Amino acid sequence: MQMLQVQRLEKEEIRLVGFSVKDSLNNIVKSNIVGILREELVNRKNEIPGKKGDDLYLIRFIPRVCGLLMYLTLISLESK
């Protein structure tokens, strides 16, 4: 059995805005929904007040139980 070392990072609070998709891997791949929504977010990022930089974050969660994947595509915002 392989044991992974847990790393703990402490950072300043990051404010994010974006979208999430929760579906089966097959449906996500067939529909290309993550790519489509990411493109829409890139095209509209100048409309987001308080946008900080041009970075995009893609986060994928793979829950062990439900068999669904969850993708988040996010843009960071200026702190209040």
Score class of each variant (00 low, 15 high):
Arg44Ser: 09
Arg44Phe: 00
Cys66Pro: 02
Val65His: 13
Leu25Asp: 15
Asn32Ser: 11
Leu37Val: 00
Asn27Leu: 10
Glu39Arg: 04
Lys45Gln: 14
Val34Leu: 02
Arg38Gln: 12
Leu41Pro: 01
Arg64Cys: 06
Ile36Asp: 07
Lys45His: 09
Glu39Pro: 00
Ile36His: 10
Ser31Ile: 02
Asp23Leu: 02
Val42Phe: 03
Lys30Asn: 15
Asn32Thr: 03
Gly50His: 07
Val42Asn: 06
Leu56Cys: 00
Ile62Phe: 14
Asp23Met: 08
Lys52Gln: 13
Pro49Tyr: 03
Leu41Gln: 00
Arg60Leu: 14
Phe61Gln: 11
Lys22Asn: 05
Ser24Asp: 10
Asn27Pro: 05
Arg38Ala: 11
Arg64Val: 08
Leu25Asn: 15
Lys22Ser: 10
Ile33Trp: 09
Leu25Met: 15
Tyr57Leu: 10
Val29Ser: 12
Leu68Thr: 11
Asn43Asp: 02
Asp23Trp: 07
Ile36Leu: 10
Arg60Met: 14
Arg64Tyr: 05
Lys30His: 13
Ile62Gln: 15
Asn26Met: 14
Ile62Val: 15
Val34Ser: 00
Asn46His: 11
Glu40Val: 06
Arg44Ala: 07
Ile28Lys: 08
Ile36Thr: 08
Gly50Leu: 05
Arg64His: 14
Gly50Ala: 04
Asp23Asn: 15
Leu68Val: 02
Leu68Gly: 05
Lys30Ser: 13
Leu41Glu: 02
Ile36Cys: 01
Gly35Ser: 03
Pro49Ile: 04
Pro49Gln: 09
Asn46Gly: 06
Asp23Thr: 07
Val42Ala: 05
Ile62Cys: 11
Asp54Trp: 01
Asn27Ala: 14
Asn27Tyr: 13
Leu56Arg: 05
Leu56Ile: 07
Asn32Met: 00
Val29Gly: 03
Phe61Arg: 12
Asp23Cys: 04
Gly50Asn: 01
Ile59Thr: 15
Arg44Leu: 09
Arg64Pro: 08
Gly35Gln: 03
Asp23Ala: 12
Ser24Gln: 12
Asp23Pro: 01
Asn26Ala: 14
Leu56Met: 12
Lys22Thr: 15
Glu47Cys: 13
Asp23Gln: 12
Gly67Glu: 01
Lys45Ser: 08
Arg60Pro: 02
Ile28Trp: 01
Ile59Val: 15
Val34Gly: 06
Gly53Asn: 04
Ser24Glu: 09
Asp55Gly: 05
Lys30Tyr: 12
Glu47Arg: 07
Gly35Arg: 00
